Amino acid sequence: MAKKPSQQERSQRAAAALGDQKRAERRRTIRSITLVVFALVVVVGIAFGVQSLRGGGEVTASPAGQSEYGVTIGEEDAPHQVVIYEDFLCPFCGQLEAGTGEELQQLADDGSVLVEYRPFNLLSRIGDYSERATSAFAVVLEESGPETAKEFHDLLYANQPSEEGPFPDNQALLDLAVEAGAEESAVSDGILGESMVDWVEAATTAAQDAGVQGTPTVLLDGEQISGDPEQILDQINETVG
């Protein structure tokens, strides 16, 4: 005949069972949270990748050298044109610049291609860095000219922050502008005061009106091309010959 458990033993068993139940519930909760976070990361990553790498859309942009919202390198009578719509925070734009910047500069210097970079504010949902950096670019373009603006453009990408931040403040943008060759007295008020926000808004509207849906958007002789930086460069070189 089995011995009837005492009240103390019953209480201990009940406490142990309750502890096991709570631990199981915590494990289920942690797994659920992990799955939700992972799903969100995947969805966001896919959405951003599609947005940033989409190709083949109908983009009707003005020819290189004919936009009010960009900087050009090369000769106006070059036989080929490249237009690049970009956002200074977009990591794919940073990859494109790293993978094609020097080669495009060489093609422009050779007289083979007229290249126009058209920055605008695509990633406003992440924060205000895209707007501030583009405003600073516009200030340098207006006050210091296209050559310094292109150098500033390159430095913005060479020092591009992560989308997760932290983001450079306006003083850091001013320091890069001075490093690019701008006179501090000429651009300080405009960069620190974000005086070209209206220019940024107009550039963004112009990009949207042209049918640009993501960054980078690259057009070669008016036709949109896509791929990774090496593939884009291959298409340009193949056309240029």
Score class of each variant (00 low, 15 high):
R31F: 10
R31H: 02
I33H: 10
V36Y: 09
V37H: 08
F38P: 00
V44N: 07
V44E: 06
G45C: 01
G45V: 04
I46Q: 02
I46F: 13
I46L: 15
I46Y: 10
A47M: 10
F48A: 14
S52M: 13
S52E: 15
S52K: 04
L53S: 13
R54Q: 12
G56F: 09
G56M: 11
G56W: 07
E58K: 10
V59K: 02
T60H: 14
P63R: 06
P63F: 07
Q66M: 06
S67T: 11
Y69D: 14
G70S: 12
G70L: 04
T72F: 05
I73C: 00
I73V: 13
E75M: 07
E76C: 00
E76T: 11
D77E: 15
A78P: 01
P79E: 13
H80G: 01
L89R: 07
P91R: 10
P91L: 10
F92T: 07
G94Y: 02
Q95F: 05
L96A: 08
L96G: 02
L96N: 02
E97Q: 14
G99H: 09
T100P: 07
G101H: 13
G101W: 07
E102W: 02
E102D: 15
D109F: 04
S112V: 00
S112P: 00
V113T: 08
V113P: 00
L114S: 05
L114E: 08
L114Q: 06
E116Q: 10
P119G: 05
F120S: 11
L123A: 14
Y129L: 10
Y129H: 12
A136W: 03
F137R: 10
E142Q: 15
S144Y: 03
G145M: 12
P146M: 07
T148N: 04
T148W: 04
K150W: 14
K150N: 13
E151H: 05
E151G: 03
F152R: 06
F152S: 09
D154G: 01
L155G: 04
L156G: 06
A158T: 03
A158D: 13
N159Y: 03
Q160Y: 05
P161R: 11
E163F: 03
G165K: 08
P166E: 14
P166A: 12
P166N: 11
P168N: 07
D169P: 00
N170H: 04
Q171S: 14
Q171H: 14
Q171A: 15
A172N: 01
